[in-house]
Amino acid sequence: MSDNKKMTIIATKGTFDWAFPPFIIASTGVAMDKEVTIFFTFYGLNLLLKDTSKLRVSPMGNPAMPMKLPMGPKWLQKIDFGPKIPNIFWSLPFTEHLATYLMKKTMKKNGVAKLDELRAMCQEFDVKFIACEMTVDLFGYSKDDFIDGVEFAGAATYFDECDGSNHNLYM
């Protein structure tokens, strides 16, 4: 057993795909007896919104993203359309909706937890959520836009949380 009992994460990304890593690492951390704090700043604030249904994944400028169909015949599911579709296609309206729909479907098929479910588990396990006050103001959010149980504070508070922490991750 280890004595390194604290972990902090800075969550900076607000797309649907990047919403997962902070919650996965945080919930696993508390399951493994760590005290975990996530500091959400800039686009990471999206992850704390009451309504996460508007989060999207964008294949635009994202050449690393594999694109396989979660349905249809087996041979078709094996094809990676990622490198085959010209990037300009993703500038068309609603293509982000399509990509997000397909990713959600693939996740469900693979038994990956839903975003809201993972977030709720983090809260149930007492992961501390801190929203960066400066970016809340900057983006014109109101505190009511966010789920309950969120603290609002700044970078100095983040450093206070880092005190004695051996895992400090930037995502």
Binding site: I24, S27, T28, A31, M32, N110, G111, A113
Partner: peptide, 13 residues
């Protein structure tokens, strides 16, 4: 069964 990372760990905890 059927659940993927990190759900088996979270449910075990």
């Amino acid at each position: 069964s059927g659940l993927n990372c990190p759900l088996p760990i979270l449910k075990t905890k």
